[in-house]
Simulated scan of single mutants.
Amino acid sequence: MKKALICGVSGQDGAYLAKLLLEKGYQVFGGSRDAQMSGFRNLEKLGIRKDIQLISVNINDFRSVLQTLIKTKPYEVYNLAGQSSVGLSFEQPVETLESISVGTLNLLEAIRFSDLPIKLYNAGSSECFGDTGHAAADELTPFRPRSPYGVAKAAAFWQVANYREAYQLFVSTGILFNHESPLRPERFVTRKIVAAACRIAQGSDEKLTLGNIDIARDWGWAPDYVEAMWLMLQQSQPDDYVIATGHTCKLKDFIRVVFDCVGLNWEDHVRTDPAFFRPTDIAEGHANPTKAREQLGWQAAHRMEDVARLMVDDQLR
């Protein structure tokens, strides 16, 4: 039986990945900073909490990481931990950089030090690219991050690349574009929109206040994306991959689809407020996931319209 350690198992991607690995017959260890006190609501929602061996690990503490690897001896490690909100990273830049960059470095160094045959997946982000205009970013596109979160993810990406080249470790980064699901907390704009639209449809007289709704993103479905993570560690050689649908839509299009799903005209219920604008933001995000399709055999099964409908269906359930 293969063993996998998921650092950040309580988040959206961690929960869906845990479910996927369990279905594939893995023994899954779920890493969290405090496994005794954490709620693990996402694991409960997916009905898999009892199937996962929860373990306390602080990836900002090298000793904690090393002890966890030696204790669990996983075949695969998935690094999904760290502060995950772009917006929050402007308010908490130090915590964001430390949790993502230092945490990744500790995992890499612990794998090297332990000398265990571990394959590592590192969660990268399209935020590393910054604003590429209408150009679709691929694995060779230069990084120009425009947020503390993007800077931290870029640092982690190059740490992984360095350890792969210098120490011949099997370590890969998935450069994931936006991917959503009902497991997102409401601080993420997609969940905020879905939750508000459903409340309004059920009688609430509130107005949904948002920032810049003209931004454009490549939105996918999170359960599709965790399959790509797993596929990266099944290859004969480690490498980095852009994971996306290849289709970009404006936020206002996502809003329209969500409100259409509940029988409302979005323009009657949504307003914008400059106070919600970020200090720097990416106007458009375009992706070219050709390498993932050709080398991993992976392709997104859902587009933005599917994602919006699935999230509304779950909210109204």
Rank of each mutant, 00 (worst) to 15 (best):
F188T: 02
G30C: 08
D239M: 08
K153M: 06
H247G: 00
E44H: 13
Q295I: 13
L231Y: 03
L176H: 05
H247Y: 06
L20K: 09
I193W: 02
D260Q: 11
W158K: 00
K207N: 08
I255D: 02
E206C: 10
D281Y: 12
A4N: 06
V160Q: 02
V194Q: 06
Y121E: 00
A110N: 04
V307N: 03
L251P: 03
M1K: 08
P74N: 00
P117A: 08
I70R: 08
V242A: 06
E23M: 15
E139V: 07
R217E: 15
G130M: 13
N178C: 04
Y225T: 10
L233S: 10
C261G: 01
A4P: 15
R184M: 10
Q299S: 12
A287V: 04
A300V: 05
D13E: 12
F40Y: 01
T132S: 15
P279T: 04
I243C: 01
T141G: 07
D131Q: 11
F259Y: 06
Q36E: 05
K119R: 11
T141I: 14
V189C: 10
L22K: 10
L80S: 02
I255W: 03
Y225A: 11
F157V: 01
N178F: 02
G11C: 12
E186Q: 13
Y75K: 12
R293W: 03
L316M: 05
G87M: 01
V65I: 12
L22M: 12
R271C: 06
R164L: 14
R184C: 14
V171A: 14
C261S: 05
S89R: 03
W219K: 04
D214M: 06
P238A: 12
Q159Y: 00
K250V: 04
W158T: 01
F29M: 13
C198H: 02
A18Q: 12
N162P: 01
I6P: 14
L233C: 09
E139R: 08
D61N: 11
V77N: 11
R278E: 12
D218W: 11
D314L: 09
R144T: 13
N265H: 13
V270A: 15
T72A: 15
G25D: 14
A18L: 09
L108C: 15
R303Y: 08
G130D: 07
Q92T: 10
L17F: 09
L233M: 11
N106W: 07
H302M: 07
R256H: 02
Q295D: 10
R63C: 11
Y167S: 06
A195I: 14
D214S: 04
D138M: 04
E44P: 15
A287K: 04
E95T: 04
G47P: 01
V171C: 15
Q83P: 15
E267A: 09
N178H: 03
G263I: 13
A308M: 12
E76C: 11
L120S: 10
H179Q: 07
N265R: 06
